[in-house]
């Protein structure tokens, strides 16, 4: 992480785009979140890490309103979540995009149609503009041009992820939710996604909520990292602070064999 970027983006005076207060999620006997608090600031890339089953995806789904939490308050863009969702239902003011873990592309539409779908639903834009627009998004996320006319079933896993990202970007969101964007990608492609996210953040002022296990991504682009464990956010902060946090799982995660390799690479560089 470059020092200038970390100085700008850890500025704590920024407004919060997401505020989660006292979130409780319980499925029957299974308590996932208990009194969880989390803030995401405008223009930052927040990485969310945690062991399997600590509720990373559940947190994401609660914030975007796909899952009604058992208790707790969530506000987006300074408004209560309910208000934002009500606008969504009317198709107005689409301000966030979500990329699901396996893309969740509409299987009966081509990649291009997947991207165009929401735009042509909500805006009256001619096909003359829609076509180059979708081409641009496709090459922006690093998909080859010919993939535009392919159906999701004939894409590889990595390509599906990219297409999912292109679709999440279709409505020009200010806030982007990504569920494991680089998992299952080769290192070169994963690096490409990292670069793209950083460029979009820097140029569009995008805020990114990123669930990931990719230590390279955490090092390369995340401004702050939130560690989920014991039903809440254990600690939030820049990577070097979080890595020092005294908790067995955190230590295991950042100082285990995989973590050490990456850390040493970055300190050498």
């Amino acid at each position: 992480m470059s020092t200038s970027a970390s100085q700008i983006h850890t500025d704590s005076d920024r407004e919060n785009v997401i505020e989660v207060r006292g979130l409780v999620n319980r499925f029957g006997e299974n308590l996932v979140h208990d009194d969880l608090d989390l803030d995401v600031r405008r223009g930052e890339i927040l990485g969310v890490v945690g062991g399997s089953g600590t509720g990373k995806s559940v947190l994401l789904r609660s914030i975007v309103g796909l899952l009604k939490p058992t208790a707790g308050d969530i506000s987006l863009f300074g408004q209560p979540q309910a208000q934002v969702l009500a606008e969504y239902e009317q198709g107005k003011n689409i301000r966030y995009g979500v990329m699901f873990q396996d893309g969740a592309l509409f299987s009966s539409l081509t990649v291009r149609e997947n991207i165009k779908l929401a735009i042509s639903e909500h805006f009256d834009i001619s096909d003359d503009l829609l076509h180059p627009l979708s081409c641009m998004k496709i090459s922006l996320v690093g998909l080859p041009a010919h993939s535009a006319t392919l159906y999701p079933s004939s894409l590889s896993g990595g390509m599906r992820k990219r297409a999912g990202l292109a679709r999440a970007l279709a409505m020009e969101p200010e806030l982007l939710f990504l569920d494991e964007p680089t998992a299952g990608l080769d290192p070169v492609s994963a690096d490409g996604i990292d670069q793209l996210l950083r460029t979009l953040r820097d140029t569009l002022g995008l805020t990114v909520f990123l669930v990931t296990h990719d230590l390279d991504t955490l090092h390369a682009i995340c401004d702050r990292i939130a560690v989920l464990a014991e039903h809440k956010v254990l600690t939030v902060g820049p990577l070097d602070e979080v890595a020092q946090y005294d908790h067995p799982w955190v230590q295991e995660y950042f100082s285990g064999p995989r973590g050490r390799i990456v850390t040493s690479q970055y300190t050498d560089a």
Binding site: H131, M136, S139, L140, A145, H146, T149, G205
Partner: peptide, 22 residues
């Protein structure tokens, strides 16, 4: 500089051959 960077990124994306309409 932000706008320039964004325009440059888009421009590079457009440079790649775009798929012709069938």
């Amino acid at each position: 500089s932000n706008h320039l960077l964004l325009l440059r990124t888009i421009c590079e994306a457009l440079q790649q051959e775009s798929h012709p309409r069938r």
